[in-house]
Structures are given as C-alpha cells and as structure tokens.
Design a binder for these strands. Structure first.
Lengths: 108, 108
DNA sequence: TTGACAGGCAACCATTTAGTTGCCTATAAA
DNA sequence: TTTATAGGCAACTAAATGGTTGCCTGTCAA
C-alpha cells in the first residue's frame, strides 16, 4: 500500500479522526483513557490505533503496564503539501516561502 | 453523513484521487474520456464519479449526449483549512493572513 | 430512420471494514 | 502471593465497498 494511501485511508474514518483530535488535545494517552466516553469497545479502539499506527499517524511507547500513544502530524502535513496544496498552486510558492521563513525563525 | 466525512471518504480511494488528478490536468471531461487507460469498466468509473459528486468534489453538466465533469476544489480547501491546518496552528494565523492578502489582490 | 455512440440503471459478487465477544498475558498493588 | 488493572490476540459477524455483467435510454450522424 502506497504511503499516502495509508494516510488517506486512516483519515477516512470519523472515529480515527476523533482519536487524533483527542491526542492533539492531550498527547501521550493510554488506550483506556482514549476509550473514555466513546461508544466503542476497547478492542475496537485498539484496532483503530493500529491502523493509525500503520499510517504513521500515531506512535506508542510502553511504560510499565501502560502504553502511551502520541500523535505524529508529519504524514498529515505531508499529504497537505504533496497533494492538497497542488489544487491551489496559485498560492503555493508564496506560502511555502513564508513557511520556510517562519521555520527559520525557529518556531517562535 | 457529515460533510467533511463525505470528502474524506471520497479521497480515501486511489482511483478517485486519480480521477481528480485527471480532471485537474484537463477539466470538463466526459465519462468515456476519463475511462481511458484505466483498468476499470465504465460503470466502475461512473460510480466513483457519483461518490465524488456527493462529496461535492466533482460537478457535471450535460451537453447533448455527452456529460462533462468538472473538479471542484472548494471542499478540499475546506478540510485543509478546517481540519489539517489545525495540526499546525503555530503558523496558521500568519498563513491565513497572507492568503487573505493574496486573495484581495484578486488572484493575479 | 437506422445504426452507433454516450451514458444510466440494477442485480449480483468478493473482499474489506468496523465492530463484537471471549479469553489470555503482564505488571502493579493489597 | 493474590488480585485488580492495562493491554494483546483470535474468531466471528454484519454491513459497506469496489468491482463486475447485462440491458435499457437518449442523442447524433449516415
């Protein structure tokens, strides 16, 4: 499976986008924490996290008996730049110039 | 189905993204033109176009016995702004300011 | 006016997907 | 050293998805 394809597929499900939202709000959550108030079993959430993991949108780190999950926005920015922005080429050069400038600033 | 959801779902399939690519290259193509060199039947392509249509990514216009298809990038920019850019809030305010400035220029 | 060509509709099929239940393992705490 | 907690694994199921074939309709051209 193409790399971009995995990301698009992972983003295609509303539950998975919700999980990313939650991780964006508070990064480094456990599986059980992510399950809270969701109308789904723990196993279902685990499967979604696995799919997000294969798309490199979430990474995890074991800590004792817990496993913390972290969002990784790189692939999202990737498809944004490689695919989505293409449909707005008009602005692209100016935008990326500004972005580079901001980044050179050091993310202040 | 949520509006964004329809767009994400529509973008989740590589054949549909390919169709958008083709329409981006040359807008206003007929169904049969879009089928060329694709390893799929006409009916399969028609279904994909229907899904893209429901997500408002493609519109069409009948002209005699032909039906021309047009890409619509608005929903793509929509999810880019409402959803994807959120994961890069650092830059968002500056970016949207520049975008607005460019648009006020009149798309020159 | 009769083909030929563009497209629409519907039934069907295989695979994938999103979810479930049930049970097992490992770590932490009593 | 039990027991509670966090998570993993596997089998199963219903529905959605991506595709097919077959046939029908409408429009243009010979």
């Amino acid at each position: 499976m193409d790399d971009d394809d995995a990301v698009f597929k992972a983003l295609a499900d509303v539950s998975r986008r919700q999980l990313l939202d939650r991780l964006y709000e508070r990064n480094g959550q456990t599986l059980n924490a992510l399950c809270e108030d969701l109308d789904m079993t723990r196993q279902a959430v685990a499967k979604h996290l696995a799919i997000l993991g294969e798309a490199n949108l979430v990474s995890s780190e074991k800590q004792g008996r817990e496993k913390l999950h972290f969002i990784n926005v790189v692939p999202i920015n990737g498809i944004a730049e490689r695919w989505i922005n293409k449909f707005e080429r008009r602005h692209l050069s100016a935008l990326s110039a500004l972005k580079k400038a901001l980044e050179d600033e050091g993310g202040r």
